[in-house]
Every structure is written in structure tokens, then in C-alpha cells.
Write a protein that binds this DNA or RNA. Structure first.
Lengths: 250, 250
DNA sequence: TAATCAGATATTGTATACAAAACTTACGTG
DNA sequence: CACGTAAGTTTTGTATACAATATCTGATTA
């Protein structure tokens, strides 16, 4: 919209800023580094946007001053992360994980993350421990400031940080995906308020990792995840009743 | 960048409520059903295109008679699957997994798939067993016809089918991703020719699943994956890619 | 000969245009 | 009133246009 008529001769610092600094390593597809992707993602995972909210392309394009082309790319990437849901001809919505998905996410986490924690405990260096402690402080600060959603997001990043220490790109990718979805799940189904217990669990975990006790780390991770899961309220039926037409159809 | 200034996202409860119950069951984003995505994907996984090959947007658009817009969407999705690699301002290339990635993929598989096989063994119905046997036949036929790459792809689908029987959408997604990458890894690093052994392993696996022996299924799966891994040559030289070939068909 | 560089060509990145589908609203009909 | 129904509006899906970047070609020079 406001991006009209770029002439060939005038120096276009906007474009320069966008394209400069891209790493050659290309660990991730470019779209995952775009401000649109990152902005929407962190707003969702930090609980600034409620699950189910529509994400209109025009509006997002205006906010980030880009065209729908790049917004669509970001939304597609977020959809493949299961953070947003793309419905054909209807648009993008913040994803609403079902209770079944919630169970699956935590089951997968309870398989993957103990393994990852054990791997991290085996090879963690002092700098890694310091990083984890910094993560915990951030999270603690968010809790203290009453920024509940932000704290959930940061808690996820703590788990991802452990995976990064384990130095296994695939596990890290999986854990990142699962933690993202966990943020949404917490937004929908959390019932307890005792984040203190979580902080304590993280602390114990870091201690086990720092002392190179893989077994302990794995066990602490399992119980931590089980504990998280038990803080969810997955009792009743699907989040909201389906329309009659959906039930009766075919 | 902050959403807090844009109240529409948070105040528009009407939209949220209306759209909240709208579960369209669409398990996958539309891109993953597009002929472009599927065509390129199966060409790569069936070893019709060599790792490293460039995938020009124009050319693909001509082949599938669509514009670059939809080609780009497909390529982006494939990049997030690690099947193609997107290099900024240079384009898309068939991914070339490194040896490290190969090790990581098979390590992840040896964690996930035994679990999945055990789950499948617990709940498999006769129809599921029949499906697995059909998969094996297809694979066997491909081997007999000398279609080696196709056989690798089908072998991956067999593993995905087990995950589908286990009825866990996240594990299925993970296994699908890992098997895709395994196809590429085999294309680059395979050294043995004894696919018979693989057929035998699959047969044993199906038997254990059919007889509802989770423990056996898990153990058979582990050794099968270890066996696959040992068929790779991950010793020294970097993988090589060939030049462009237009084996892609509509 | 090998290396370098300028211009020409080709390809990607992004914006915009337009068609198709969904949503809204207002209106009639039972 | 409830319920469909048909304009008009909005939003998405795809194609195309153009700018930015990369790649190729060929001439020039050490």
C-alpha cells in the first residue's frame, strides 16, 4: 500500500534493512525470520491473542507495512507449526487445540523431553547452565510482574533451551513445536495458578543437568511434564459445542 | 509491532465466538494437498530428482500450469519439511542432508518408532493388518520392478502407516517427517543392495503387530531401524548432486 | 591461459490486480 | 417471528507486474 514506486536510483534503506544480515547458514527458511512471522507468533504464544481469533491478511499487512504476499507466507508457516489454523476460503485463525491434541502433545513431550534432558545433562557446560538460569530469572520476573501468558511462553523457551544444549537439531525442532502448542493448550485449559511449583521443578532440573546426572534429569523432566499435564482441565467435551449442521451432516 | 495498540484483535469477541466451534477437520493446511506440493514431494522422495538439484519457480509453474505464487507456497511447505532447502535470493534446491543430520534422523526414529509400533500393536484391527500387508506388496512389487527409489519411498509409507494405526496425530506427523528425510538420506548415503532383508523385517513387524505383542513390535522396530542405519555409508566425502533433469511430470 | 569485470540475461522477492468464494444485510415469504 | 433468499460488501486465492539480486557471457588485461 504505502510501498509505491521504488525507483531504481534512489537508495531504498527499507529494502536494505530487510535483506541485509541474513545468515548464509540458512538454518531456517527465511520466512521464520520475518518480523511478521515472529510478531504474530510471539503475540499468540504470549497469550496476547486469544485462540480462535481471526487473523485477516489485510489487517496484518497494514500493521507490519507489508503486502498480503508476505503475510500469507508467515501465516502458512505458522499453520505448519499448528499455531494458526488455515481454513480454505475463510482465512487464518489462532489455533484451538482440542483436548485430544492436548493429550497427544503432552504424551509426546513425556517421551521426548526426558531423553533430551538426559542428553543435555551429559554434555552441559557451565555456560549452558548460566543460560538456563537466565531463562529461569526471566520467567520468574514475568510471573512476579503478573504477566502470566508471557511466563508460559518463557517456560516453553526454557524447555527449548535444554533441547539446544542437548545439541540435537531434530529433537530441538520437535520440542519447539510441542512447546508452542503447549502455550496454546495452557491458554485454553489451564486451571491451576501455582506457577511456583513450576519454578521449583525447573530449578531442580537445572541442578541435575549441572551435576551431570542424566538419569535424575530424565526423571525430573518426566514428573515435571506429568505435573504440567495434571494442571490442565481436560474433563469435559470439546472446547465449544459444534453446530448442529456439522453433526448431522452426512 | 505491539498488538496492544490494535484493540481489534482482543475486543472482537463476536468474531471469536462465532468462529470458535468451526472445526473443519481439515487436518492439514491446503498447501499440502496441492498437486504442486505432492508432485514435487513424490518426485523427490521417489528419487526422481537428485539432492542438490535446483527447483526454479518458473519451470515448476509451467509444468503444473500454475503461477509462481502457488509454486512458492509449495516450496515453502517443502522447506519446512526439510525436503527442499530455500536459499535467500538464490532459490529452492532439493535438500542434501548432512551426515550429522542423517545420524540425528535415525536416532530420533529409534526413539519414536518403537513406541509407535508398540501402540499400534495394542490396538491394531484386522483391517489395519490388511493395509500393512498391501503396503508390503506394493513395496515388494517396486523392488521386483527394479524401481529402487520408489521402493524406498514406499518403505517410508509403511512406517507412516504404522504410526497412523497407532492413532496418534503428532507421532504420525513426526514419523512422516523423519521418513521423508530418510528417503533423501538413503538417496545420498545408501551402500547396500539387500532390500530383501528389509522386506523380511517388515514382515516380522506386521506379525508382531497382528498378534498384539507390543514388546516384540517395539524390539523388532528398534533392530530394523538400527539395521537400516547400518546400511548407510556415513564415512567421509560429501554427497554430490547432479545437474538439472526434467523428470517431473504433471 | 587464467582471472577480472561490465553489461546482458535470468531468477527471486514483493506489491498489486482481479476473479472467486464467503460473509453481511436487508428483504420478503411461510 | 423464524427462516430462507438475494443483493452488496468484504476477504481470500491466484496471476501478473516490476524491482532487487544473482548468474551468465564475453571481452580485456596481466
Amino acid at each position: 500500500m504505502q510501498y509505491s514506486n521504488h525507483t531504481r536510483f534512489q537508495t531504498d534503506n527499507t529494502t536494505m534493512l530487510k535483506t541485509s544480515g541474513k545468515s548464509r547458514t540458512a538454518g531456517q527458511p527465511p520466512v521464520q525470520q520475518s518480523p511478521v512471522y515472529l510478531g504474530i507468533r510471539s503475540a499468540i504464544l504470549g497469550h496476547s491473542i486469544t485462540p480462535g481469533t481471526k487473523l485477516p491478511e489485510d489487517e496484518l499487512g497494514d500493521i507490519y507495512s507489508v503486502s498480503r504476499t508476505v503475510v500469507r507466507a508467515a501465516l502458512q508457516a505458522l499453520a505448519l507449526d499448528h499455531i494458526v489454523s488455515l481454513e480454505p476460503n475463510r482465512g487464518a485463525f489462532v489455533a484451538k487445540p482440542t483436548r485430544l491434541e492436548a493429550r497427544e502433545v503432552f504424551e509426546a513431550r513425556s517421551l521426548l523431553e526426558p531423553k533430551v534432558a538426559a542428553m543435555a545433562a551429559e554434555i552441559a557446560k557451565p555456560a549452558d547452565i548460566a543460560l538456563l538460569e537466565r531463562h529461569m530469572e526471566e520467567e520468574h520476573a514475568a510471573v512476579a510482574a503478573g504477566k502470566d501468558g508471557e511466563a508460559v511462553h518463557l517456560s516453553g523457551q526454557f524447555h527449548v533451551a535444554i533441547a539446544e544444549i542437548a545439541n540435537h537439531s531434530i529433537y530441538t525442532d520437535f520440542v519447539r513445536r510441542l512447546c508452542s502448542r503447549s502455550s496454546l493448550i495452557v491458554a485454553l485449559y489451564w486451571r491451576r495458578r501455582d506457577t511456583i511449583c513450576e519454578h521449583h521443578a525447573h530449578h531442580e532440573l537445572v541442578k541435575a543437568i549441572a551435576q551431570h546426572k542424566p538419569k535424575d534429569a530424565a526423571e525430573l523432566m518426566v514428573s515435571h511434564i506429568v505435573d504440567l499435564f495434571s494442571g490442565l482441565d481436560l474433563s469435559e467435551r470439546e472446547p465449544v459445542g459444534k453446530k448442529l449442521s456439522d453433526i448431522l451432516k452426512v
